[in-house]
Write a protein that binds this DNA or RNA. Structure first.
Length: 283
DNA sequence: ATAGGCACCTGGTGGC
DNA sequence: TGCCACCAGGTGCCTA
């Protein structure tokens, strides 16, 4: 489900409920998600104050006053919902527990954070805050697409001599971290680059153009509260609405929206995943 | 070193 | 109604 904009949307939604607040109780309802939870996870969360909620790529990081950081990944189907209304601050009263509510955090302010993940591709781990960047899952990540380390020269270097399709290069989190299937499709559409084009065979100027385009797409999506397909919800349960702005993703058979283009959006499968693009204007 | 494919899961949809 | 095939926003790991 969640690519960078959705994760950022969730982080923002969780912040007022979690940041500065103590976790009074942690219900851990199963031993694992994608991997086993860390040893004594519930104990290590209980009584700890959340000092800061950060995001790195598609990970949410909750720095605790114990010197540990809770790392959260939503996988394909993970959701984090805030409930409880102690100060009239949060939208929903506590809902009845649902299937796949794997971890529930009870906060001292009365809020409750429920991690629900049907497919269980999500993950949680605890790591030393000081050594966060060396964590196995974080160490391999390329630059943040909205940060200063993601720039034209970086992409030019990364694309150089690459024989693989640009689609898979942009999905590679080591090149730039945070994009997923939707936003790669959207970025390539705006850049008018065919998803199957070999990355090493794209002219420098077109490679450069991807940088502001990727920034724009992600920025607009965050602004819109992410994209809600299937089960994605913001932390307050609201839907994002960037899905209404898709030019390519999920629009197979529909009219291309590029200026003066009369093409029709096509779908191809690349390494097992759908790519949507306009064969007329993406080359 | 790198590229490609598989695996991990559940649930929804559409066809017969 | 039931069964089946196929699809889904991710990504670590294994193989070649």
């Amino acid at each position: 489900m969640p690519e960078l904009p959705e994760v950022e949307t969730v982080r923002r939604g969780l912040t007022p409920a979690m940041q500065g607040t103590v976790i009074t109780q942690a219900d851990v309802n199963r031993p694992d998600l994608r991997w086993p939870f860390p040893e004594r996870m519930a104990d290590r969360l209980t009584g700890k104050r959340v000092m800061q909620l950060r995001r790195r790529s598609k990970y949410i990081l909750a720095d605790l006053d114990s010197g540990e950081t809770l790392l959260i990944h939503l996988g394909m189907s993970g959701r984090m919902l805030v409930s409880g209304d102690p100060l009239g601050q949060f939208v929903h009263a506590h809902p009845a527990p649902e299937k796949h509510d794997h971890v529930v955090l009870h906060m001292a302010n009365g809020a409750r954070i429920t991690f629900n993940d049907p497919r269980r591709f999500g993950a949680m781990d605890l790591l030393e805050t000081d050594k966060a960047e060396t964590h196995k899952l974080l160490a391999v990540l390329g630059p943040e697409p909205l940060g200063n380390d993601f720039h034209e020269e970086h992409l030019i270097q990364a694309f150089k001599n690459k024989n693989s399709p640009v689609k898979s290069v942009l999905l590679d989190q080591r090149i730039v971290s945070g994009l997923g299937n939707i936003y790669v499709c959207e970025a390539l559409f705006r850049a008018k680059i065919h998803p199957a084009r070999k990355a090493g065979r794209i002219g420098k100027n077109r490679v450069k153009s991807l940088v502001p385009i990727i920034r724009d797409v992600l920025g607009e999506a965050i602004e819109a509260g992410g994209s809600s397909l299937r089960d994605f919800r913001q932390a307050d349960g609201e839907l994002g609405y960037f899905q209404h702005c898709f030019d390519a993703y999920g629009r197979e058979g529909a009219q291309c929206r590029a200026t003066d283009c009369r093409g029709v959006i096509s779908r191809i499968v690349q390494s097992g995943r759908s790519s949507f693009y306009c064969p007329q204007c993406q080359r």
